[in-house]
Each structure stands twice: as C-alpha cells, then as structure tokens.
C-alpha cells in the first residue's frame, strides 16, 4: 500500500547510555520520572530505544527541551558518537540501492560515508567551521576530502554554492570571523550541500539568531528543501520552526520519544502530557 521503496533512513532501538546501568535504571528514569539519570547508579540514559523512518524528500522535526536527548539522537545519526545499542539503516533513494547499517561500518568507511552522504549544520558555527580558514576553504573541505584536486574547479563550485545560499561570492576568501551569525549559518549550509548529500541534519540552526535573520535562514532551508527535494532531520526546541518546515514531528523527553505524528496533529491534538505542556507553553 505504501511506497516502501523510498525510505532513506530507518532507525531502530537506538540507545545511548553513559554508564554501566543497573537493574533499577528502567524503573527510575524516563519522562515519568523527570530525569534521564538513574539516581542509584548515576548512569545517564541520553537516548533510549529511539526508532523512526525518514522518507525521501521529507523533513522530520525533533522537538524537546534541553537534555531531552534530541541532540544525542542527532549526533548518533551523524556518526560522531557510537550508540550503546540499536541500528541506523541508510539507503540511497534510488530503486536498486541496498540499505547499509551505519552502526557496524568501520571508521574509514564511516568517515567517507559521512563526508559524502550526510550534511550537518550546527547551532554554533565554530563547531561546523574552522575559523582559522577562509570561508571558501571551509566550504571546500568536503570537496577536497572527496578528491577534488583542481583549485579552479573547486572555486567554481564554491561560488555556485555561495550564490545558492545567498552569500556574496566576492567574499570567498574572507575570514569567517568577519561574517555575521546568519551568514555563518549560510556558510555551514553551503558546506553541507557541497557533496549533494542524501540527508541533511539541522541542529538548532536558527537558535541564537535574531528574528529577521532567523526568518531568512528558514526561508533558505525551505527553498533548498523545495528545489532539491532534500531529506532533512530538523532538531529544534522551537515549535514555530518545526511548524514551518517539518510535516512530521517527534517529541522527546528525558531520552525517550514520547510522541510522534503529523506536525499539525502534534500541535492541535497532542496526546502526551509533556507535548500538551510544550504546545500550551509555545502558543
């Protein structure tokens, strides 16, 4: 009945635990207890048994308060931390591609997979960019790792990406420290898009920007999503951002996914007490 061929990411049982855990962890952590840390063994259950499927061209929102595990989930999918348990399956949105489990990949394959197939935009630009290099150098990093070895062609591609992300191309060799916060987010987006990734991860990309700048960055992301049919995972604590971009949303609290559904359903008919609190606080 459904178009099963077009999924891009399939996450099952994804768990990240800091600590060894104890028999009383299960009964004393999670949203019902208001904490992800076990009071007996101090183990932090940052992300517990997360599962979802992401389809080609779709934007999935992940919403939750600080410490809810949404950034942990993002880092797990970006392969920057290793899960304690669970699987992350990725497949190219083409007909005859085979799915691969990112968790069991060796470091070398994983690094090159991440460079080629994933793009990430961090909340703080200095996490995604090297502030000692020029703007162009930062955008070029993924291309260079993918064996682009012609400076002229690399610069053509950077210029193309800068125009696409509404950055002034004549500032290609400028120091990123001279760029504003909104522009740095664009540089991050340009870098993320440089390899034509199959999945774009957006981690609180507009938090900390003032409203007008925030609006322009969101418009850019919407345009990219629209024009390139880009599949995106969008982490935000801001329901307004989620509402604008994501059609499906996951709500996290204390390491658990407490609710998932269509974004309009989450906003208008929230089921979980926490989601109801979140929605009533936002509107």
């Amino acid at each position: 009945m459904t178009d099963v061929a077009s999924w891009v990411l399939n996450v099952t049982g994804l768990t990240k635990r800091y600590g060894l855990g104890c028999p009383r962890c299960a009964e004393s952590t999670g949203p019902d207890h208001g904490s992800s840390q076990c009071p007996f063994c101090q183990t932090v259950h940052a992300c517990v048994n997360a599962g979802f499927t992401l389809y080609q061209g779709e934007v999935l929102g992940i919403v939750g308060e600080s410490g809810s595990g949404k950034s942990t989930l993002m880092q797990l999918i970006n392969l920057t931390i290793n899960p304690t348990a669970g699987e992350i399956w990725y497949r190219e949105p083409t007909q005859d591609s085979t799915a691969m489990n990112l968790v069991t990949m060796d470091g070398f394959t994983r690094r090159h997979f991440r460079n080629d197939r994933l793009g990430i935009v961090h909340q703080r630009p200095e996490l995604g960019l090297n502030m000692r290099f020029s703007v162009g150098g930062n955008v070029a990093e993924k291309l260079l790792l993918a064996n682009w070895r012609h400076i002229g062609r690399i610069r053509e591609r950077i210029t193309e990406l800068m125009i696409q992300t509404e950055l002034p191309p004549e500032r290609i060799d400028d120091d990123p420290n001279t760029f504003s916060g909104g522009m740095l987010q664009r540089v991050q987006i340009a870098k993320a898009l440089s390899s034509n990734p199959g999945l774009l991860l957006l981690d609180e990309v507009t938090s900390g920007l003032d409203l007008s700048v925030q609006a322009r960055v969101l418009d850019l992301i919407r345009r990219i999503q629209w024009e390139q049919k880009m599949t995106m995972l969008l982490v935000s604590h801001d329901l307004g951002v989620i509402k604008q971009l994501a059609r499906r949303t996951i709500v996290m609290k204390n390491g658990f996914i407490v609710e998932s559904g269509l974004t309009d359903q989450i906003l208008e008919d929230p089921q979980h007490p926490y989601t109801q609190l979140l929605v009533s606080s936002a509107l």
């Binding site: 559904g261 269509l262 309009d264 359903q265 208008e268 008919d269 089921q271």
Partner: peptide, 9 residues
C-alpha cells in the same frame, strides 16, 4: 472534519 483530515486522532 479534523478527524477525517487526521489532524485529530
């Protein structure tokens, strides 16, 4: 109406 549209569960 919202139940039909699935805005409501």
């Amino acid at each position: 109406l919202k139940c039909i549209y699935r805005t409501y569960i």
